[in-house]
Design a binder for these strands. Sequence first.
DNA 1: TTATCCACTTAGCATGGAGGGG
DNA 2: CCCCTCCATGCTAAGTGGATAA
Length: 806
Amino acid sequence: MPATRTFDSDDSDEFKGPAFKRSSASLKQNSMPTPSSSGNVQHCQKSTLKRPHVEDVLMVDTDDSDDDDKPLALRKKADDREFKRINAYNVDSDSEDEKPLSARLFKDAASPSGGNVSDDDDSDDDKTLAARFSLVTRNSVDMPIGPNNTALNGSASSAPRNSMKRPCDSNIQPSSALKKAKCTDSSASASSEDDGSDNVPLARRLTVGESSKRKPPAKDIAKKKKNKSSSSSKDNKKVVTKMKTEKVKSNSKVREASGGGKKWSTLEHNGVIFPPPYEPHGVKMLYNGKPVDLTPEQEEVATMFSVMKDTEYASKETFINNFFTDWSNILGKTHTIKKFELCDFTPIYEWHLREKEKKTQMTSEEKKALREEKMKQEDKFMWAFVDGVKEKVGNFRVEPPGLFRGRGEHPKMGRLKGRIRPSDITINIGEGAPVPVCPIPGESWKEVKHDNTVTWLAFWNDPINQKDFKYVFLAASSSLKGQSDKEKYEKARKLKDHIRNIRANYTKDFRSKDQVKKQIAVATYLIDKLALRAGNEKDDDEADTVGCCTLKVENVTCLPPNKLQFDFLGKDSIRYLNTVEIEPPVYKAIMEFCAGKNKGGHVFDKLDTTKLNAHLKDLMPGLTAKVFRTYNASITLDNILNKQTEDGSRPEKMNVYSRANKQVAIICNHQRAVPKSHDSQMTKLIEKIDELKAQRDEWKEDLERVKTGNPLAGDEDGKRKRKLTPQVLEIKISTIETKIKEMDITKTNREELKTVALGTSKINYLDPRITVAWCKTHEVPIEKIFSKTILAKFGWAMDVDPDFRF
DNA sequence: TTATCCACTTAGCATGGAGGGG
DNA sequence: CCCCTCCATGCTAAGTGGATAA
């Protein structure tokens, strides 16, 4: 397959045409990129799938003293040049370009117009820019902490608490003891003292309460392999329970001593649930204009393709080629269908539309009944018992067959992802626990293991990439996950104590004679300042994306005197475009690294993630590249919340939170596609605002007239208005003004957030304790910030002390 | 060493149902 | 009350990074 062919809008037609003759209409091809001329073409294409974005950012450099905690990357709008370039990238879709709202947000400095809302801090930032280095410093210096002492607490904390306690509520018998332990502890205060590695009360608390597991940080050491046997006392739940309870107290110690990577003692679950078998619909597609017969298996794959008609994949050459290759295999050599161009999948597509319609036509009762039925069937798969505690299972449904939807320009997009059968699946379960019954009669599991050094309940090999695994894990709300989540944040907090040192260290090495050292220094600097990912090496059969260690010469442009422009596709083929001012020695080093290499060469040719991480580990135990992302994200949130929250209404406070959240999202480059309904939504909002303004003006005029004794102007239909007193009018006017203001804020926020994904950082990077503490201090109900599932996931963080600081 | 295996976290998108506005 | 957003949730791809094999 001609993977290299470029797609311009035309191509897409070419492909789709034949396949969907009848319904030409709907295909949307707009988003297809029109490549710009330069060498970046490929990038654009890729990125377009996902919608590129720009961010021009400016980074302020911090380095100076104090800022150790500061985030580094502040983004700013860049010069026009840059904008243009960007526009060129996305031609169609965004002509108007939204640019960086994101960027804008931060600093409006650059954007004259924009100023409306928010950003208080902008000013700071701006200056900074201007001033260049100082910003950071400033930030850190500025407001001292503030608010927290206010103590509060109360209400907020209690509510959430319960919800979280999963272990407590879980039924399973055990626990009263457990329960007690846990709940009790919870009252303890939190810790502000971080790390000490583990000594924290929190940690302790968790340990006790949560089921026993806690994985000792000390992994390694113990030669895992031994798993088998060990402690499985199992069997009788009661027994288990009892043991558990007893163990609890000493638990963590014991664990550490005894066995390194032990994750659980007893594990029970019911395995996985399979998607229903394929039900043929019998609708015949056309080949060369004539209906063709397909076996159910062949029809199934044809259907998979047909229903993707209105996605972008349907017009991608790679996708089509891969699909057709795999489908042809199923059709067999002798089948009439030989050429994709002669296939017309429309009848199947239309059948699919009808089915969809039927579904939406169902009454809510029918839907509900269906749902309940499903629930009933799935209920037993939803739960597992880990060390006697009932925990939710994450993905107990085996992935159904389908066509692979890789992101970006994935070389394997469109490949058939075949049906997974029991014989593909390995089950992991406590020794002595009943092995889940294979739900498909006559078949059996590939293997049943009893490995308590891992947390997965089952896995199979990914059919698209045999060497990859798909695991069934516990849900995020489980204590096993909660525990490791907490450890992740504790590690990031620990970095706080080392960061100054680390920065000093790499700064010194910018000029090292040792090239390896120098590259490590510069790479670390970028990871720290820009929150870049580590950048593991990738195979050719994956989308071509990069991270720090895999940056290519073509991804970095040196802009004298000391700015760098980064332009590359990162994880999920999301484009990272950012121009930053860096320290001169780094600038020099980068130029030097790039010298004499061709476009595709690695900037850091003497480096890979293993070496980098090995070095980091020397600076702080457990430190790896990704810790910097967590650290920078959380410290940024903590700083902004503490500096910028003022007394005010709840919505105002929440606004501070979301601005902070947004800044983190920008630092981490968490983007999303512009919601489909964005434009129409905006239009509506604007209309609404205009209406309100008109109303306000009318009232103002009325007020004037009433005051001066003039008669009111009549309504359109000639009726006279009821006469209002000036007081009433004034109230009305002020109410409507407020409303207008609110809507303006909504409008601005929505516009600025249309390409920013806030959820990712909230779920993965921001220490929930920061949020919880802030909510307690400022009397914002935690539910306003965390959804139900997130709340469940962060149960371990709910009882944090209001004075907690990251 | 480097390549591979393995385990687990992090990511954006589609969707469907709860809840808000007309 | 109904429609219609809009957001939470589910899904699964795509990263990171440790350990082991070659």
